[in-house]
Design a protein around this nucleic acid. Sequence first.
DNA 1: TGAAGGGATGACGCGAACGTAAACGTAACG
DNA 2: CGTTACGTTTACGTTCGCGTCATCCCTTCA
Lengths: 134, 134
Amino acid sequence: MTEPIMTIREMCDEFDVTPRTLRFYEAKELLFPQREGQKRLYSKRDRVRLKLILRGKRFGFSLEEIRQLLDLYYMDDSQETQLRETYVLAEKHLADMQSQRAELDDAIAELKAQMDWGQARLKQLNEKQGTAKS
Amino acid sequence: MTEPIMTIREMCDEFDVTPRTLRFYEAKELLFPQREGQKRLYSKRDRVRLKLILRGKRFGFSLEEIRQLLDLYYMDDSQETQLRETYVLAEKHLADMQSQRAELDDAIAELKAQMDWGQARLKQLNEKQGTAKS
DNA sequence: TGAAGGGATGACGCGAACGTAAACGTAACG
DNA sequence: CGTTACGTTTACGTTCGCGTCATCCCTTCA
């Protein structure tokens, strides 16, 4: 299993990001690595958060949206109101992802149809050339 | 059915974008409205393209990527090489969307699990308060 | 001891995707 | 004939998400 604590460079290698990016996320309060003197040290918690950050980006969420959602995945025994608000936010997030999934399915189906059409056209072109040459 | 030809404002209302955005897309060669004197007039073709543009954005593609893909949906009887290149591009696009779909499924499942956990915590809190008050 | 390597901290830069303001055209309405 | 509404062009401004120096600070190792 991987080390419980990693340097910034190890993080960069594992997640394929630059040091600049990690420091940037920290400045934006999405990550909170511990310090050993000056140096940043990333724990498993940081790795989980970074994974979620990159996933969020992939789905088109802004860093600010992601920041708010991150608490979702580290819900501790906080106040009920806090927990409740987080839950509501999660519901919206879920709804958004589900609708995005539906749209994605549509888009995939449409694209496939277009590609079938294109393939048919290519086949037609090949046949024409084939007969012309023979 | 909606008018075959629309002004810039009608387009904005229908697709919830600003005039600036439509002109910007035109400058980037994603849209090609006809002109009546100075005024832009948008045909059904433009509406189809705009819909695809917005969809592409939703899935995290850049305007430049989208521009290249748009030809897919209006493949005419162009050169074979052109058609073939477009087809290859489409395959990549499709692969990307499919992997995005898979990731999205994972993310949805994880989020649901987290929400179940949160809901259990909330229930627990309510019960405590309930017994305390009774 | 000094030179190299890894990390930290500003600070400025940059491309994408528009926002916004200024200045102009023109068509219709009272 | 003025003004109101809608559209156009030009151009500079803005936010996001980092990239890219320049400079500094330890640590280590020959």
